[in-house]
Computed example of a mutant assay.
Amino acid sequence: MEIGERLKEAREAKNLSLEEIQQMTKIQTRYLQAIEKGNFSVMPGNFYVRAFIKEYATAVDLDPDVLMEEHKSELPATSDESAVQYTRVQRSRKESPSTSKSPAVFSFLPTLIVALLVIGILFTVWYLYQQSQGDDQGQSNQQTEDQDEVYVGDPDSSDTEENSDGEGGESSAEDDSQTEEESQKDDSANEEEQPEPELNVVDQGTQGNDQVTNIELVNPGEEIVVEVASESDHWLEITEGEDNELYSGMFGEADSPLKEDLSGADQFMIRFGNPEPIDITIAGVSLEIPEMSGNTVQRVFVEVVDEKEQQE
């Protein structure tokens, strides 16, 4: 069996195609077919016949040295095998015409990229510099225009403007003084015009043993504080609205003075024992109720009336 047939038989035993052997050895298919047929004349040289056969044998798991020794009579003689060292890298370079030019291109490419980067950086720096110069020039022109606007005028009028500024400064000070005085007068007028709180009795009646008095608190101001003081004991109730009970119980000297803040309330009720002395003030106004004979308990309903809100 010739060497080409043995290689083909080993390839078929491993179920490998010539394309797969080409991928493994990087040897062109036409050379592999020539080896299997024993047609060594198509090879580029006698050295490549031996080199290709060794690669083929290694790919199909045959010992290349043993195979070459057994079939050395079939192989063409080579004058100096040691003069040429075959490798896959050398073979791939000889088989591919384009690869012989690629190293020069690739070696030049990094230099080209670096040069482009340098040119780009220099252009960017130049452009930013031009922009900054343009901005500075624009600011300088703007400042020049502003100065021209400030100093345009009649030179003879400078004294007049200085005098005018001096008189204007004095006039401005006088105006400020007058404004402060007017503001103080307005504040005083507002304080004087602020009406004082008043407690006006609307009507009176009875309910059981209670004397009932309806009172209007006119112009209550911002705060409505009910203050109660007494030297003797009394029953005291203070209720906001209908059911918000603020105080309920005996009240005496030990509890005096009692202060309840009813600011914002529309109506509230104060109920206390009739025997005196007991002092009650509402929004700073003393509560005085006309007495009705035969009653021992006072029930006072206070309705808050703000005349300003009614007028508005």
Rank of each mutant, 00 (worst) to 15 (best):
G221N: 07
E222L: 08
I224R: 13
V225Y: 02
V225P: 05
V226K: 10
V226W: 07
V226M: 12
E227G: 05
V228R: 02
V228T: 01
A229C: 04
A229H: 08
S230G: 05
E231A: 14
S232A: 05
D233I: 07
D233Y: 06
D233K: 11
H234P: 12
W235R: 02
W235C: 04
W235M: 01
L236Q: 01
I238H: 04
I238V: 15
I238E: 09
T239W: 12
E240G: 13
E240V: 06
E242Y: 14
E242C: 09
E242P: 05
N244R: 13
E245R: 10
E245D: 15
L246C: 05
L246N: 08
L246A: 14
S248G: 07
G249K: 00
G249W: 03
G249R: 01
G249Y: 02
M250K: 12
F251L: 10
G252F: 00
G252D: 14
D255G: 11
D255I: 00
P257G: 02
P257A: 02
P257H: 03
K259L: 10
K259G: 05
E260R: 01
E260N: 00
E260Y: 00
D261I: 11
D261P: 12
L262K: 11
L262F: 15
L262G: 08
S263I: 14
G264D: 06
A265S: 15
D266G: 08
D266Q: 11
D266A: 11
Q267R: 13
F268P: 03
F268I: 06
F268S: 10
M269S: 14
M269T: 06
M269A: 04
M269D: 10
M269E: 06
I270D: 08
R271P: 11
G273Y: 00
N274M: 09
N274R: 11
N274F: 01
P275R: 09
P275C: 03
P275M: 07
P277Y: 14
P277N: 15
D279I: 05
I280P: 05
T281M: 01
I282C: 08
I282D: 09
V285Y: 11
V285M: 11
V285P: 09
V285A: 08
S286A: 05
S286P: 03
S286H: 01
E288F: 01
P290E: 15
P290D: 15
P290C: 14
E291N: 06
M292D: 15
M292Q: 15
M292G: 15
S293P: 03
N295D: 13
N295M: 13
T296K: 08
T296F: 04
T296D: 11
V297C: 03
Q298I: 12
R299Y: 04
R299E: 07
R299G: 09
V300L: 04
V300E: 00
V300Y: 03
F301W: 06
F301T: 10
E303P: 00
D306G: 02
D306V: 04
E307G: 07
E307D: 10
K308E: 13
K308A: 14
